[in-house]
Amino acid sequence: MRAIPSAVLILLCTCASRANAQDARSGTVPYHVEAHIELGPMASDFLRGRPLPQGASRTTMGYDAIVRLMWHPDHLLAVGLLSGYQLLVAENYVVPDSLSSGSVHASLHAMPVMFDVSMQVRSLEVGVGLGGYILTTMLDDLTTARASRFELGTIFHAAYHWRLQDHLSLGAEALVSYMAYRGILAIAPQLDIEYDLLTY
């Protein structure tokens, strides 16, 4: 369960060590405001299993779309806000009991709301988001229920970017999403479109 976050930590340490060998940007380096739009499929693992629905697999497939707005001053760090939408699981299943033999349709969604910090060295960006998720459930079992709840969580992300134009670059990103209270770990390979909104 802790292997993946530990691996991410080691990756960050390694990147940071290598980045440290680079001279920091001088005071003449401009400041940037950067927007990131990221999309990709997402695999989720319910680390404590899924006792219900009966027989459900603990791993599920969904997708995510993340938006980050980052302020990147004249050193290596950038800070900003991260949000978006994640589909953790959507499925139809039958509950074998006396109340009904009808099928249930249910889905679980998450909207991360986080403070994000990233380190940008040349084309590599490694970052972490701290905050929480607004988890939303949609449950259609005879009648439809919809409910939400905020829980703390984290996102790790690492990307490599190719510059397409002066203000536009395209990246390949790995995103790891962790909802600690609920024990859901999600991994998403993503396409990361970065655009420099403002340079000063």
């Binding site: 930590l9 910090v117 790790f156």
Partner: peptide
């Protein structure tokens, strides 16, 4: 730069 590490470490431990 090390802010990332601090937060990453924090996240790992927190989680």
């Amino acid at each position: 730069m090390r802010l990332i590490l601090a937060l990453a470490l924090g996240s790992v431990l927190l989680n």
